[in-house]
Design a protein around this nucleic acid. Sequence first.
RNA 1: UGGGGAAUUGUGUAACGGCAGCACCUACGACUCUGACUCGUAUUGUCUAGGUUCGAAUCCUAGUUCCCCAGCCA
Length: 579
Amino acid sequence: MDTPAAKTNFIWDAVEQDLRSGRYQSVHTRFPPEPNGYLHIGHCKALVADFLTAEKYGGVTNLRFDDTNPAKEETEYVDGIMADIRWLGFDWKGGLFFASQYYDQCYAIAEDWINRGLAYVCELTAEELRTYRGTLVEPGKNSPYRDRPCAESLDLFHRMRAGEFPEGRMILRMKIDMASPNINMRDPAMYRILYKEHHRTGKTWCIYPMYDFAHPIGDALEGISHSLCSLEYEDHRPLYDWVVEHASNLLPARPRQIEFSRLNLTRTIMSKRYLRMLVEGGYVTGWDDPRMPTLCAMRRRGYTPESIRDFIGRIGVAKADSVVDLALLEHCVREDLGGKAPRAMAVVRPLKVILTNWPEEKRDALEMENHPDHPELGTHQAVLTREIYIEQEDFMEEPPKKYFRMFPGNEVRLKGAYIVKCEGCEKDESGIVTAVYCTVDMDSRNGSEGASRKVKGTLHWVSATESLPFEARLYEPLLMDESDAEAALAADTEESDIASTAPTSSSTLKTDFLKTLNRGSLETCCGYMESYLATAQEGETFQFLRMGYYCKDRDSTAELPVFNRVVGLRDSFAKQVKA
RNA sequence: UGGGGAAUUGUGUAACGGCAGCACCUACGACUCUGACUCGUAUUGUCUAGGUUCGAAUCCUAGUUCCCCAGCCA
């Protein structure tokens, strides 16, 4: 599988320089997820950066689960993440690792540092610690425990491990610089007490290393050359280097951390916290609801790994904050599926058409190509009968200009079948069209002499009696578009301005986020499909002619077979009408 | 008010002192038994102000705007 990435990017430039200068002899990367949730499209950028950077320079990539916080992590996520990475087509040739397997080494380094006066046990409460840390503009103060004897710290640390103290009673801190303008360097925590069962180490430990301590150690122990991560860790790089430097007596390598900007997508939620809120609040049916940006959801919806990798290759890698247009992802999906998805006819919003001059019992089995560009994919039969369904939007009693579908007096072609002429329609009391009447030009059967004359419109159709009902699920983004979201938030502000002048808190942020949810993100339609789709397998994708790509869903609780709309076809007519 | 980053067309990303390119989006056209695909055409850009230079997106100076950081999360 290819990911036609850009020719180069700033990371590869840096890697090449490192190789040329001899700083590193080979390239070894790692992908380090925390197993506290499912992977989403945002993670793919890191996945591709890690795996392709190594591959490009003949190196390998490790998969390492950064499982240093047992309160949040579960085996379910470990399994899910591995399945998602495999699905995308990546292979952790460097090996599978867990940060938790380095707990012994971390512990040894901690003891070493205590002995060397580089770490100390601090008994400040969390609250006190916050005050001692200072602020963004004011330096912090040294902890009163900072200069306690090494032996005392060591003893306390051993007793922390032995489970003699309750959670929060004390922590182990690095001794760096409480006056540093970089807050991360103000004696950061290394170890905290946590009486949580770990998904891999069970109850072996009741103290756990912090990310800033364990991560560089894991990298170095694995011989990672380039440790790629997102921009918010730039401030942590001095700390990363400090850890590696001071533990170098116990570490085999000196990795280099390089940061790049995260992926943001328009109208897409890319925060694990908010995604969890959607799942737990019942706004979606689960982590794999096809509207979610998780890989398991995209897989279920019918996105292909090829299209996702193509997408990631096209967006590039840089350090500037950016928001990629969802349209680019959709383009990649269409491009991939367009070349390989078999074609079929299905009517999503049916309107009955009666072919008045077609004999009641007549059936005509027509040969339909499975793919216009791939004759080797063969054909299937579609049966034409007196009563058929067409798409509601394909008939208008009073058409606008440039409408070349069905309207009274107009001729259109039924795809792969005959040319028909619309003679009129039938409406109910409220004026809704309930049926359309057409006459068939019996000489215009597909392939015959009379079929060669040109008519402007070609419609997809299914027989009313020989098709199968199905459920179409049409998806739109989970978030409103920008202008709607702004309007929704503005309307909300007007109301709350009167009630309160409270500053923005995390709880208002939460409600703000929920206010910008797109209420129309799921539409369910009962349509009819060609009977040849009855054997479609779960995960199989078709192009429903003129409608879009649809993937057979696994939902077995629904009464009808379910097809997810992966993405619609481009529709220049719809755009024209809107404008 | 401290520290760390970033600014190139509507969006994303190239150009590493020498013609601002590519993709998506948008618009128009050709083709069409999918208003799809394909093909063609077009619009729009170097944050600002100075400076260096034959020549600046690129180098220098000053400014502006945006993002990140005060977890015993990662």
